[in-house]
Amino acid sequence: MSVKIRNIDLGDFPLLLAPMEDVSDPPFRALCKENGADLMYTEFISSEGLIRDAAKSVQKLDIYEYERPIGIQIFGSDIESMRKTTEIVERTNPDIIDINYGCPVKKVACKGAGAGILQDIPKMVEMTKEIVNTTKLPVTVKTRLGWDENTKYITEVAERLQDVGIEALSVHGRTRKQMYKGEADWDLIAEIKNNPRIRIPIFGNGDIDSPEKAVAYKAKYNVDGIMIGRASIGYPWIFNEIKHFVKTGEHLPPPSIADRVHIAKRHLEMSVEWKGEILAVNEMKRHYSNYFKGIPHFKDYRIKLVTSFDLNEVRDTLDEIVWNAEKGLITL
């Protein structure tokens, strides 16, 4: 049965690209969309930054027709600021507005935004209600199980958020205190999904890094879809690989070295176009290790890619990798 957020049809078992700061930008989203992502979210946007018209926050509003359906994610700790932000975001015409109640980083959470609001559930519910009432767009939420081991109230929170009008919920199976350590607890995510009061789609997030795991978690935890974050960094192929495995039980052939270089180069060039050479060269560094993961004797090339600050030097290194792969000097 198709999963829907209001009238947005996401197919039978949608795969979502998680919003990731300095990762889920338009160049990266373009590659994930081409490789099978069903719904994508922008990097999270600071409500205070957007209201102040801060350049970085405003730039994150850039969305493109080919990305649809696309959600813009916002975060903040002040209800009135979040209401104003919702009005600004709605004017850019995304398909969905998503609220970030999950970011665990100190500078966000310790100001009461992101996962910080998990320490004040009544405020979380009140803020959500205000945002839902401000916009005609569907509102979704991404959050965590709780602030720490003693505050895993997510089942009750899910009901309360649904009651004030959210239309889908993505849950990362860790507490804020865990950050990204340990193993994600999907039992609580399944508890939300199997709660007879819950009518909205429930998407699970955390630790899905292979087609096998996606299929196993789909069967075991009964979620409506899966949100993929870290496993997609430098590896946008994961979406189609999971879809193929869900459908056939078989693996797609892995991308060749030439495929990897081709996508890395496209990613780099789109980044240069969107954010300028200096930022693009710097921010691409987090992707290279994953683009070329598992290739034997690759260390010297990896060092070149992550230490170079010169765009032409990076291009030359990528060309050299393809040339050496064609000669059989680098193999998977």
Rank of each mutant, 00 (worst) to 15 (best):
T143N: 09
N290H: 13
C32V: 03
V261C: 04
G36T: 04
V164I: 10
A216G: 14
T140H: 00
H172W: 09
G112R: 01
E273W: 15
Q119E: 06
I228D: 10
T175Y: 11
T134P: 10
V132F: 01
P122W: 04
M20R: 00
L61R: 06
A190M: 14
R199W: 15
E183I: 15
M20V: 01
T307D: 07
M127Y: 01
K218F: 04
A168W: 08
V215F: 12
G229M: 06
Y288C: 05
T143V: 05
R302P: 09
D310A: 08
D148V: 03
G328M: 14
A280C: 07
L305M: 04
V141R: 00
E241F: 02
N312E: 12
L17Y: 13
F298Q: 05
R68K: 08
L61F: 00
I96Y: 02
N150E: 15
N195K: 07
L318M: 02
V272Y: 05
D22G: 08
Q59F: 05
K243C: 04
V58Q: 07
K177N: 09
I208C: 15
A190P: 05
K106C: 12
L39H: 01
M227V: 10
P253W: 03
R176I: 01
F203Q: 01
L169Y: 03
E130Q: 15
D185Y: 00
K123L: 13
I257H: 06
D62H: 14
Q59M: 11
K107Q: 13
S57G: 06
V223H: 08
M20S: 08
R68P: 09
L137K: 02
R286I: 10
A216R: 14
G225Y: 01
I192Y: 01
I257T: 08
V314W: 00
D316N: 10
K129G: 07
Y291F: 11
L16P: 00
L305S: 03
G116V: 05
G229N: 03
Q162R: 11
H287M: 12
T248D: 07
G71K: 00
N312K: 12
R91M: 12
S81V: 05
K123C: 06
G165R: 06
M124D: 00
M227G: 11
L39Q: 04
E34C: 15
R83K: 13
P255E: 12
Y153F: 14
Q162I: 08
R230C: 09
H172Q: 11
K304Q: 11
A37M: 07
Y41K: 03
A109Q: 03
I321G: 02
V314G: 04
L17Q: 13
V281G: 05
G102H: 05
R286N: 14
E126P: 02
H244D: 11
R197M: 14
R174D: 06
I330L: 15
I278T: 14
D95G: 02
V272L: 11
N205G: 05
A18Q: 04
V215D: 12
E156I: 11
V215W: 11
K33I: 03
F309W: 12
G249D: 12
I131F: 06
P104S: 09
R29H: 12
N133I: 03
K193L: 12
D310E: 12
L252H: 07
M227E: 08
I257N: 13
N290I: 08
A280L: 02
P236Y: 15
G49E: 03
D95L: 01
R6F: 02
